Amino acid sequence: MMATTHVFVGLLLAGGVAMLAPDYAGVAAAGAILGGLVPDFDVVGAHRKTLHFPVYYWLPAIGATVLAFMVPTPTTVFLAVCLLAAAVHCLTDVIGGSHELRPWEGNRDRAVYSHYHGRWLEPRRWIAYDGSPGDLAFAAVLAVPLLFVFETAVQFVVIGMLLVSISYALLRKPLASGAGWLLDRN
């Protein structure tokens, strides 16, 4: 899935916080955005391995969530939503395509690395690949309720990320072709 789709999933978690405790909506949204993005910071290294922990993120996420319920502060709510969004991000990478330059070709069976299992988990391909029409549709469906749950600042972020999603989906295959051409030349 696209990074923006992962952020929208995290923002849905933050939306639950916003409805139950509106005072924490902003910090929950910030935590969701950061947590939805952080695992993909490993794109410069061993992508879907270095910062992706489909099992291990859950331990601190559950602990932080319990803490946020017991001691709700901006810091505990931010941390809980951030860790939950990161945990869900890593788990949902399994429902997407494989980790490769042209995942629509389906040449690899690597969705995300599980450090707990010591192996790559296979992609389910429910969403064919990041930037696929299905990924874009899923992102749009996730974005719509967010526009009604959050206030203006987060709404602008959601709209901006939706525009990025549309652009990326339109350019996904040409970007892969261009990157492949560059890699072939080196």
Rank of each mutant, 00 (worst) to 15 (best):
177 S>R: 15
182 L>E: 01
144 V>T: 12
110 R>T: 10
102 R>V: 03
106 G>F: 00
64 A>F: 02
108 R>C: 02
75 T>R: 01
24 Y>L: 12
36 G>N: 04
42 D>N: 09
130 D>V: 11
59 L>H: 03
49 K>P: 00
24 Y>K: 10
16 G>F: 13
147 L>N: 07
84 L>N: 11
178 G>Q: 14
78 F>L: 09
53 F>T: 01
181 W>L: 15
40 D>K: 02
42 D>Q: 08
125 R>M: 04
38 V>W: 06
152 T>K: 06
77 V>K: 03
105 E>F: 05
175 L>R: 14
151 E>A: 12
118 G>N: 04
38 V>Q: 00
3 A>P: 07
126 W>C: 01
56 Y>G: 10
94 V>W: 03
171 L>W: 10
183 L>F: 12
64 A>P: 07
135 D>E: 08
85 A>C: 04
31 G>W: 10
148 F>A: 15
28 A>V: 07
94 V>I: 15
49 K>W: 06
138 F>A: 14
56 Y>H: 14
128 A>C: 06
146 L>I: 08
124 R>E: 04
40 D>L: 02
27 V>R: 04
168 Y>C: 10
49 K>V: 11
17 V>C: 07
182 L>K: 12
44 V>Q: 08
105 E>P: 02
155 Q>V: 13
59 L>A: 15
55 V>N: 00
127 I>R: 01
112 V>R: 02
91 L>H: 02
142 L>M: 11
94 V>R: 06
86 A>R: 01
19 M>P: 00
140 A>T: 14
168 Y>T: 13
72 P>H: 11
95 I>Q: 08
122 E>H: 13
163 L>E: 03
35 G>F: 02
31 G>I: 09
12 L>C: 12
42 D>P: 08
132 S>M: 06
149 V>E: 06
34 L>F: 15
28 A>R: 04
124 R>A: 14
63 G>Y: 05
73 T>M: 02
147 L>Q: 10
38 V>S: 00
93 D>Y: 02
30 A>E: 05
75 T>S: 08
12 L>W: 13
25 A>Y: 06
119 R>Y: 06
158 V>C: 08
24 Y>M: 15
143 A>N: 11
94 V>G: 00
152 T>V: 07
28 A>L: 09
18 A>M: 07
44 V>C: 07
115 H>P: 01
3 A>N: 13
68 A>T: 08
181 W>A: 15
156 F>A: 14
107 N>E: 10
59 L>P: 12
117 H>N: 06
175 L>H: 11
158 V>K: 12
37 L>T: 10
109 D>R: 15
133 P>H: 13
147 L>S: 05
12 L>T: 12
168 Y>R: 08
41 F>P: 00
145 P>W: 09
63 G>C: 10
35 G>I: 00
88 V>N: 01
24 Y>H: 14
131 G>P: 09
84 L>Y: 05
3 A>C: 07
111 A>L: 06
172 R>I: 15
151 E>I: 00
74 P>Q: 09
62 I>Q: 03
152 T>A: 12
122 E>Q: 14
127 I>N: 01
175 L>D: 13
50 T>L: 14
96 G>D: 05
160 G>M: 03
98 S>C: 13
41 F>H: 04
160 G>R: 05
71 V>L: 08
37 L>V: 14
136 L>Y: 13
74 P>H: 08
176 A>S: 14
42 D>T: 06
154 V>L: 04
144 V>W: 13
21 A>N: 07
135 D>C: 05
56 Y>L: 15
35 G>W: 02
